[in-house]
């Protein structure tokens, strides 16, 4: 029973992290129908910048909640800048080309960023500090969930609420919904498509930064390769839930997190990573539109 409970908690935690990354994939896909392959790398850069700022600011004497918030904020700003620049360099000049071109460009960008971090920092694992200060109410959960697990789930929940409010309540959110429905009509109604696309990359990158910081604190180590696998899995989650759908991405991420966690706990941890890919192939062959996706009819 305790194993079961632990697996549930770890599944929920994993799912939350996947959700933070999956949002970036699903939002970008919803707007411009592109798999932003380099999104996993943004998440990795988020983890690295947060670590770097924590060391730099830590040396200046900052600690506790102040340090965590400062690192989170700076990582988010930097990831947003990376996401924005990425779109301008690798995707924007390719708009209107065949579908293969942006996808290959995205893969190229992903490889570039991975090796860039590896060259300017290190190809080895880095130890990650636990930046999360003691939580007041975490004592009640001791034995079931760790502090960082609680923090991850809480931060993800808050992020989701914020995103939902943003999409539902703001002008930019409305513009995003309009563009994902019908880009041509949206443009004719005066929506600045370029700004919407940029904002989508920025918002997705901010969530990825949050995910990167939290995963560092939870696993206590990072390296420049972690973005690739995490990105693949988050994409799987997004597809699982129906790509383009924000609640779908969350649900898909949770399903994936739980499946992996249970597979590792009850089958074998060797095959933990296989689960995501097997699920991906099964879903795409059986129900390509995902759980929350709507069946789209081909226009001829």
């Amino acid at each position: 029973m305790e194993l079961f409970l632990n697996l549930c908690v770890s599944g929920l935690t994993k799912g939350s992290i996947y959700a933070l990354i999956a949002l970036g994939y699903t939002m970008v896909y919803g707007i411009i129908a592109l798999i932003n392959f380099a999104h996993g790398e943004i998440y990795m850069i988020g983890a690295f910048t947060a670590l770097i700022f924590s060391m730099a600011l830590g040396a200046l004497g900052l600690s506790g909640w102040g340090l965590l918030l400062a690192c989170g904020l700076l990582a988010a700003v930097y990831c947003a800048m990376y996401g924005w620049t990425l779109e301008k360099i690798a995707y924007k000049p390719l708009r209107g080309q065949s579908r293969l071109a942006p996808l290959i460009s995205a893969i190229g960008m992903s490889i570039f960023l991975q090796n860039y971090v590896q060259l300017v920092q290190t190809p080895n694992f880095l130890a990650y500090p636990d930046l999360i200060p003691p939580l007041p109410f975490a004592g009640a959960l001791s034995g079931v969930a760790t502090k960082s697990q609680v923090a991850i789930v809480a931060a993800t929940a808050l992020s989701m609420i914020a995103l939902t409010l943003f999409i539902k309540r703001t002008r930019m959110g409305l513009a995003m919904r309009a563009v994902s429905q019908d880009p041509t009509m949206a443009r004719l109604s005066g929506v600045n498509i370029d700004r919407v696309i940029s904002s989508t990359f920025v918002i997705g990158s901010v969530f990825a930064a949050v995910g990167g910081l939290l995963i560092g604190c939870a696993t206590r180590q990072i390296d420049s390769y972690q973005g690739f696998l995490a990105g693949m899995k988050a994409f799987t989650a997004a597809v699982l839930g129906g790509i383009g759908s924000v609640p779908g991405a969350v649900i898909g991420s949770l399903i994936l997190g739980f499946s992996e966690s249970f597979a590792a706990g009850y089958v074998s941890s060797d095959y933990e990573d296989v689960v995501a890919f097997v699920l991906l192939i099964l879903i795409l062959t059986l129900r390509p539109d995902g759980i929350m996706g709507s069946a789209t009819t081909q226009k001829v």
Binding site: I104, S105, I107, G108, M109, F112, Q114, N115
Partner: peptide, 14 residues
């Protein structure tokens, strides 16, 4: 090497 591969893919596509 890999850095350049990545760059080549982007630059060629653009």
């Amino acid at each position: 090497r890999m850095l350049i591969f990545g760059l080549i893919m982007v630059v060629m596509m653009v």
